[in-house]
Protein backbone atom coordinates (compact mmCIF):
# COMPACT_ATOMS: atom_id res chain seq x y z
CA UNK A 1 0.00 0.00 0.00
CA UNK A 2 1.28 3.46 -0.89
CA UNK A 3 1.92 5.89 1.94
CA UNK A 4 0.20 8.65 0.03
CA UNK A 5 -2.37 8.02 -2.66
CA UNK A 6 -3.77 11.09 -4.37
CA UNK A 7 -6.55 10.42 -6.84
CA UNK A 8 -8.19 12.86 -9.22
CA UNK A 9 -7.75 15.80 -6.86
CA UNK A 10 -9.67 18.89 -7.98
CA UNK A 11 -9.60 22.39 -6.54
CA UNK A 12 -11.41 25.47 -7.74
CA UNK A 13 -11.37 28.95 -6.30
CA UNK A 14 -14.69 30.21 -7.59
CA UNK A 15 -14.55 29.92 -11.36
CA UNK A 16 -10.79 29.41 -11.36
CA UNK A 17 -10.09 25.74 -11.83
CA UNK A 18 -6.64 25.42 -10.23
CA UNK A 19 -6.36 21.64 -10.05
CA UNK A 20 -8.11 19.74 -12.80
CA UNK A 21 -7.60 16.21 -11.49
CA UNK A 22 -4.19 15.29 -10.11
CA UNK A 23 -3.28 11.68 -9.27
CA UNK A 24 -0.04 10.26 -7.96
CA UNK A 25 1.29 7.98 -5.24
CA UNK A 26 4.26 8.17 -2.91
CA UNK A 27 5.71 5.01 -1.36
CA UNK A 28 7.24 4.95 2.14
CA UNK A 29 10.80 6.33 2.02
CA UNK A 30 10.38 7.68 -1.48
CA UNK A 31 11.03 11.23 -2.71
CA UNK A 32 8.63 12.53 -5.31
CA UNK A 33 9.23 15.86 -7.07
CA UNK A 34 6.50 18.04 -8.53
CA UNK A 35 7.83 20.28 -11.28
CA UNK A 36 6.20 22.92 -13.44
CA UNK A 37 6.08 26.64 -14.09
CA UNK A 38 4.58 29.22 -11.73
CA UNK A 39 0.83 28.88 -11.58
CA UNK A 40 0.74 25.21 -12.60
CA UNK A 41 -0.80 24.26 -9.25
CA UNK A 42 2.15 22.59 -7.49
CA UNK A 43 1.73 24.45 -4.23
CA UNK A 44 -2.03 23.92 -4.27
CA UNK A 45 -1.49 20.15 -4.54
CA UNK A 46 0.59 19.91 -1.40
CA UNK A 47 -1.54 22.41 0.49
CA UNK A 48 -4.59 20.35 -0.39
CA UNK A 49 -2.85 17.20 0.85
CA UNK A 50 -2.09 18.92 4.17
CA UNK A 51 -5.66 20.18 4.44
CA UNK A 52 -4.57 23.81 4.02
CA UNK A 53 -6.34 24.31 0.69
CA UNK A 54 -9.81 23.12 -0.25
CA UNK A 55 -10.21 20.17 -2.58
CA UNK A 56 -13.74 19.81 -3.89
CA UNK A 57 -13.30 16.45 -5.55
CA UNK A 58 -11.08 13.42 -5.54
CA UNK A 59 -9.36 11.53 -2.78
CA UNK A 60 -6.24 11.84 -0.66
CA UNK A 61 -5.42 8.63 1.17
CA UNK A 62 -2.66 8.67 3.74
CA UNK A 63 -1.69 5.26 5.11
CA UNK A 64 -4.94 3.95 3.67
CA UNK A 65 -7.14 6.54 5.40
CA UNK A 66 -9.14 9.09 3.46
CA UNK A 67 -8.15 12.57 4.62
CA UNK A 68 -9.67 14.85 2.01
CA UNK A 69 -12.31 17.03 3.58
CA UNK A 70 -11.38 15.92 7.09
CA UNK A 71 -12.18 18.43 9.79
CA UNK A 72 -9.45 20.32 11.59
CA UNK A 73 -10.07 18.08 14.62
CA UNK A 74 -9.61 14.93 12.59
CA UNK A 75 -6.54 16.35 10.87
CA UNK A 76 -4.70 17.39 13.99
CA UNK A 77 -3.45 13.93 15.01
CA UNK A 78 -2.47 13.30 11.38
CA UNK A 79 -0.24 16.37 11.38
CA UNK A 80 2.16 14.32 13.48
CA UNK A 81 2.71 12.14 10.44
CA UNK A 82 2.57 14.78 7.71
CA UNK A 83 4.88 17.77 8.13
CA UNK A 84 5.12 20.79 5.93
CA UNK A 85 8.11 22.93 5.00
CA UNK A 86 6.92 26.27 3.71
CA UNK A 87 8.31 28.24 0.84
CA UNK A 88 9.49 31.36 2.63
CA UNK A 89 11.91 30.23 5.36
CA UNK A 90 11.95 33.41 7.44
CA UNK A 91 8.31 34.27 6.80
CA UNK A 92 7.19 30.88 8.08
CA UNK A 93 8.79 31.50 11.48
CA UNK A 94 6.93 33.72 13.91
CA UNK A 95 9.22 36.72 14.51
CA UNK A 96 8.39 36.97 18.20
CA UNK A 97 9.22 33.41 19.21
CA UNK A 98 12.66 32.07 19.98
CA UNK A 99 14.00 29.21 17.91
CA UNK A 100 13.45 26.96 20.94
CA UNK A 101 9.76 27.82 21.07
CA UNK A 102 9.43 27.50 17.33
CA UNK A 103 10.86 24.02 17.03
CA UNK A 104 9.16 22.66 20.12
CA UNK A 105 5.78 24.18 19.30
CA UNK A 106 4.64 20.95 17.56
CA UNK A 107 4.95 19.08 20.90
CA UNK A 108 2.82 21.67 22.65
CA UNK A 109 0.21 21.67 19.90
CA UNK A 110 0.02 17.89 20.05
CA UNK A 111 -0.28 18.02 23.85
CA UNK A 112 2.88 15.97 24.43
CA UNK A 113 3.44 17.33 27.92
CA UNK A 114 5.81 14.60 29.02
CA UNK A 115 8.59 15.82 26.72
CA UNK A 116 11.58 17.74 28.02
CA UNK A 117 11.35 20.61 25.57
CA UNK A 118 14.88 21.91 26.20
CA UNK A 119 16.33 18.50 25.49
CA UNK A 120 14.20 18.14 22.35
CA UNK A 121 15.29 21.58 21.10
CA UNK A 122 18.89 20.58 21.61
CA UNK A 123 18.40 17.27 19.81
CA UNK A 124 16.62 18.87 16.85
CA UNK A 125 19.20 21.63 16.41
CA UNK A 126 21.93 19.03 16.49
CA UNK A 127 20.10 16.97 13.90
CA UNK A 128 20.11 19.91 11.45
CA UNK A 129 23.70 20.91 12.30
CA UNK A 130 22.95 24.13 14.14
CA UNK A 131 24.77 25.00 17.39
CA UNK A 132 22.73 24.54 20.58
CA UNK A 133 22.89 28.25 21.54
CA UNK A 134 20.73 29.03 18.50
CA UNK A 135 17.78 27.98 20.67
CA UNK A 136 17.79 31.44 22.25
CA UNK A 137 17.90 33.35 18.98
CA UNK A 138 15.04 34.99 17.14
CA UNK A 139 14.31 34.46 13.44
CA UNK A 140 15.70 37.86 12.43
CA UNK A 141 19.08 36.76 13.73
CA UNK A 142 19.29 33.89 11.25
CA UNK A 143 20.58 33.78 7.69
CA UNK A 144 18.35 32.31 4.99
CA UNK A 145 20.13 28.96 5.13
CA UNK A 146 19.88 28.79 8.92
CA UNK A 147 16.18 29.65 8.81
CA UNK A 148 15.68 26.80 6.32
CA UNK A 149 17.37 24.41 8.71
CA UNK A 150 15.10 25.59 11.52
CA UNK A 151 12.20 24.83 9.15
CA UNK A 152 13.58 21.33 8.65
CA UNK A 153 14.03 20.85 12.41
CA UNK A 154 10.44 21.89 13.07
CA UNK A 155 9.14 19.62 10.34
CA UNK A 156 11.09 16.70 11.85
CA UNK A 157 10.10 17.34 15.47
CA UNK A 158 7.27 14.81 15.55
CA UNK A 159 9.05 12.22 13.44
CA UNK A 160 6.66 12.37 10.52
CA UNK A 161 6.32 9.74 7.83
CA UNK A 162 5.85 12.29 5.09
CA UNK A 163 7.34 15.73 4.52
CA UNK A 164 5.79 18.17 2.09
CA UNK A 165 8.49 20.63 1.05
CA UNK A 166 7.56 23.70 -0.97
CA UNK A 167 10.66 25.02 -2.80
CA UNK A 168 13.05 23.98 -0.02
CA UNK A 169 16.11 25.53 -1.68
CA UNK A 170 14.63 28.65 -3.31
CA UNK A 171 16.72 31.72 -2.60
CA UNK A 172 19.63 29.79 -1.12
CA UNK A 173 23.20 30.20 -2.27
CA UNK A 174 24.62 27.21 -4.11
CA UNK A 175 27.01 26.25 -1.33
CA UNK A 176 24.20 26.32 1.24
CA UNK A 177 21.79 24.61 -1.13
CA UNK A 178 24.08 21.58 -1.27
CA UNK A 179 24.22 21.49 2.52
CA UNK A 180 20.44 21.46 2.83
CA UNK A 181 19.96 18.79 0.17
CA UNK A 182 22.63 16.61 1.78
CA UNK A 183 20.87 17.04 5.12
CA UNK A 184 17.51 16.04 3.64
CA UNK A 185 19.01 13.05 1.81
CA UNK A 186 20.73 11.95 5.00
CA UNK A 187 17.62 12.29 7.17
CA UNK A 188 15.57 10.45 4.62
CA UNK A 189 17.96 7.52 4.78
CA UNK A 190 18.21 7.50 8.55
CA UNK A 191 14.56 8.06 9.35
CA UNK A 192 12.96 6.50 6.28
CA UNK A 193 11.04 9.67 5.47
CA UNK A 194 8.94 10.01 2.36
CA UNK A 195 8.97 13.44 0.73
CA UNK A 196 7.06 15.42 -1.81
CA UNK A 197 9.29 18.23 -3.05
CA UNK A 198 8.18 21.15 -5.15
CA UNK A 199 10.89 22.89 -7.05
CA UNK A 200 11.54 24.63 -10.30
CA UNK A 201 15.26 23.93 -10.07
CA UNK A 202 15.69 20.87 -12.26
CA UNK A 203 19.28 20.38 -11.15
CA UNK A 204 17.96 19.81 -7.65
CA UNK A 205 15.36 17.31 -8.80
CA UNK A 206 18.01 15.10 -10.39
CA UNK A 207 19.83 14.69 -7.08
CA UNK A 208 16.99 14.21 -4.63
CA UNK A 209 13.97 12.72 -6.35
CA UNK A 210 13.28 9.06 -7.09
CA UNK A 211 10.29 9.89 -9.23
CA UNK A 212 8.94 13.12 -10.64
CA UNK A 213 5.70 14.49 -12.01
CA UNK A 214 5.50 17.41 -14.42
CA UNK A 215 2.49 19.68 -14.01
CA UNK A 216 0.92 22.00 -16.53
CA UNK A 217 -2.25 24.02 -15.87
CA UNK A 218 -3.28 21.98 -12.87
CA UNK A 219 -2.72 18.54 -14.39
CA UNK A 220 0.12 16.07 -14.56
CA UNK A 221 1.33 15.80 -18.14
CA UNK A 222 4.16 13.33 -17.53
CA UNK A 223 5.36 11.15 -14.69
CA UNK A 224 8.12 8.62 -14.24
CA UNK A 225 11.41 7.85 -12.56
CA UNK A 226 13.71 10.86 -12.46
CA UNK A 227 16.31 8.92 -14.39
CA UNK A 228 13.93 7.99 -17.21
CA UNK A 229 12.55 11.50 -17.54
CA UNK A 230 15.94 13.18 -17.67
CA UNK A 231 17.12 10.57 -20.17
CA UNK A 232 14.14 10.64 -22.43
CA UNK A 233 11.38 13.17 -21.80
CA UNK A 234 8.34 12.19 -23.88
CA UNK A 235 6.06 15.18 -23.37
CA UNK A 236 7.04 18.29 -25.37
CA UNK A 237 6.50 20.43 -22.28
CA UNK A 238 8.94 18.32 -20.27
CA UNK A 239 11.43 18.58 -23.11
CA UNK A 240 11.08 22.38 -23.10
CA UNK A 241 11.50 22.56 -19.32
CA UNK A 242 14.60 20.39 -19.34
CA UNK A 243 16.14 22.33 -22.20
CA UNK A 244 15.59 25.58 -20.30
CA UNK A 245 18.08 24.57 -17.63
CA UNK A 246 21.06 26.96 -17.92
CA UNK A 247 24.37 25.07 -17.74
CA UNK A 248 27.24 26.44 -15.66
CA UNK A 249 29.54 26.19 -18.68
CA UNK A 250 29.98 29.02 -21.18
CA UNK A 251 30.75 26.53 -23.95
CA UNK A 252 27.72 24.34 -23.38
CA UNK A 253 25.88 23.81 -26.63
CA UNK A 254 22.28 24.23 -25.72
CA UNK A 255 19.61 22.88 -27.94
CA UNK A 256 17.02 25.09 -26.48
CA UNK A 257 13.40 24.58 -27.37
CA UNK A 258 11.51 27.80 -26.94
CA UNK A 259 8.02 27.83 -25.51
CA UNK A 260 5.66 29.98 -27.49
CA UNK A 261 3.55 32.63 -25.79
CA UNK A 262 2.30 32.80 -22.24
CA UNK A 263 0.51 30.20 -20.11
CA UNK A 264 -3.19 30.36 -20.98
CA UNK A 265 -5.69 31.72 -18.47
CA UNK A 266 -7.23 29.14 -16.16
CA UNK A 267 -10.56 30.82 -16.86
CA UNK A 268 -10.31 29.94 -20.53
CA UNK A 269 -8.66 26.55 -20.76
CA UNK A 270 -7.77 25.71 -24.36
CA UNK A 271 -9.77 22.99 -26.11
CA UNK A 272 -8.08 19.70 -26.93
CA UNK A 273 -4.55 19.43 -25.62
CA UNK A 274 -4.10 22.39 -23.29
CA UNK A 275 -0.46 22.75 -24.23
CA UNK A 276 -1.18 22.74 -27.96
CA UNK A 277 -0.99 26.50 -28.57
CA UNK A 278 2.48 26.76 -27.06
CA UNK A 279 3.79 23.41 -28.23
CA UNK A 280 6.58 23.49 -30.82
CA UNK A 281 5.71 19.91 -31.82
CA UNK A 282 1.91 20.21 -32.06
CA UNK A 283 0.17 18.24 -34.79
CA UNK A 284 -3.35 18.11 -36.16
CA UNK A 285 -4.39 15.31 -33.83
CA UNK A 286 -3.70 17.56 -30.83
CA UNK A 287 -7.08 19.23 -31.28
CA UNK A 288 -8.42 16.15 -29.51
CA UNK A 289 -8.16 15.81 -25.76
CA UNK A 290 -5.26 13.56 -24.69
CA UNK A 291 -5.90 10.99 -21.96
CA UNK A 292 -3.54 9.94 -19.20
CA UNK A 293 -1.83 6.75 -20.28
CA UNK A 294 0.68 4.69 -18.33
CA UNK A 295 3.19 2.27 -19.83
CA UNK A 296 6.03 0.67 -17.81
CA UNK A 297 5.45 3.04 -14.91
CA UNK A 298 5.79 6.08 -17.19
CA UNK A 299 2.66 8.22 -17.32
CA UNK A 300 1.97 10.57 -20.20
CA UNK A 301 -0.77 12.91 -21.39
CA UNK A 302 0.09 13.56 -25.04
CA UNK A 303 -1.21 12.50 -28.44
CA UNK A 304 2.01 13.27 -30.28
CA UNK A 305 4.74 12.16 -27.87
CA UNK A 306 8.42 12.57 -28.66
CA UNK A 307 10.10 9.19 -28.76
Amino acid sequence: MSLLDVKNLKTSYGPVNVLAGVSFTVEPGETYALVGESGSGKTTVIRAIAGLAPAQEGSVKFDGREIRGASERELRPLRKDIAMMFQDPVGSLSPRLTIRSLITEPYRIQGMKDRDLDAEAKRLLEMVNLPAHFADRYPYQLSGGQARRVGVARALALEPKLILADEPTAGLDVSVQGELLNLMNDLRERLGLAMVIITHNLNVVRHVADRMGIMYLGRLVEEGTTEAIFKEPCHPYTRCLLSANPEPDPDARLERIALKGEPPSLLRRPKGCEFRERCPFAQEICIQTPQWEVANGHGLRCLAPLS
Binding site: V174, S175, Q177, G178, L181, N185, H207, E247, P248
Partner: peptide
Protein backbone atom coordinates in the same frame (compact mmCIF):
# COMPACT_ATOMS: atom_id res chain seq x y z
CA UNK B 1 36.61 26.81 -8.13
CA UNK B 2 34.52 25.54 -5.23
CA UNK B 3 31.57 27.72 -6.07
CA UNK B 4 31.51 26.18 -9.55
CA UNK B 5 31.92 22.69 -8.06
CA UNK B 6 28.91 23.30 -5.82
CA UNK B 7 26.54 23.95 -8.71
CA UNK B 8 24.48 20.79 -9.04
CA UNK B 9 24.15 21.55 -12.75
CA UNK B 10 27.68 20.25 -13.14
CA UNK B 11 26.90 16.85 -11.74
CA UNK B 12 25.02 14.78 -14.25
CA UNK B 13 24.76 11.54 -12.31
CA UNK B 14 22.67 11.43 -9.19
CA UNK B 15 24.98 12.24 -6.30
CA UNK B 16 24.48 10.96 -2.76
CA UNK B 17 26.39 13.87 -1.33
CA UNK B 18 26.61 17.22 -3.08
CA UNK B 19 29.72 19.37 -2.65
CA UNK B 20 29.43 22.32 -0.26
CA UNK B 21 31.73 25.00 1.13
Amino acid sequence: RRLIDCDPGHIKERARVLPTI
